[in-house]
């Protein structure tokens, strides 16, 4: 059985890039932390589209459609204005918990979830584009999937 959670909790942020190397390479798009997306004439690069797609499978039930927030979890279009890439990664990998009388908020640790971790930089790119106001709501028009993305996905998803 695959170990349930906790595995990443002993991994410090400094080691994350090494640890992530175990399940997949970090795509070049993530290198540009400030502007990790390309949008030309309203058409987004494949990675940003991939982020949109994975977000609406893995994240939106709590964080709301288009990163707008839900009653469960904050609006990431706001959070990403201040949350740096390393901190974003830390929360996605390890999760976060706020439990109180009126708040029962529990972000799960996605560190072992390939459907999230293989696309974590895509998610970051999409949400950054949203929080920068560079990308509106809904499904964006996309560039075709490049061969390197196909190879990346196959290598990472196994």
């Amino acid at each position: 059985m695959i170990p349930y959670r906790g595995q990443w909790k002993i991994v410090s942020v400094g080691l994350l890039s090494i640890a992530l190397g175990l399940i997949g390479p970090i795509p070049a798009t993530a290198q540009d932390e400030e502007k990790p997306y390309v949008i030309k004439d309203g058409v987004v690069d494949w990675y940003t589209f991939s982020g949109f797609r994975r977000y609406h499978a893995e994240c939106h039930v709590c964080h709301g459609p288009d990163g707008l927030g839900g009653s469960f979890a904050p609006a990431l279009v706001e959070s990403l204005k201040t949350l740096a890439y390393d901190d974003f990664l830390e929360v996605v990998v390890n999760g976060r918990e706020k439990i109180g009388a009126s708040v029962q908020s529990k972000m799960p640790a996605f560190g072992e979830n390939l459907n999230v971790m293989c696309f974590v930089d895509d998610l970051y790119a999409y949400l950054k584009a949203r929080s920068d106001g560079a990308l509106g709501r809904g499904r964006p028009k996309k560039q075709p999937k490049p061969q390197e993305a196909k190879e990346r996905d196959d290598a990472c998803m196994g």
């Binding site: 059985m1 695959i2 959670r5 994975r54 499978a57 893995e58 072992e112 459907n115």
Partner: peptide, 10 residues
């Protein structure tokens, strides 16, 4: 992955 969302559609 056990205990993780297994959705596969947007």
């Amino acid at each position: 992955t056990a205990g993780q969302p297994y959705v596969g559609a947007t």
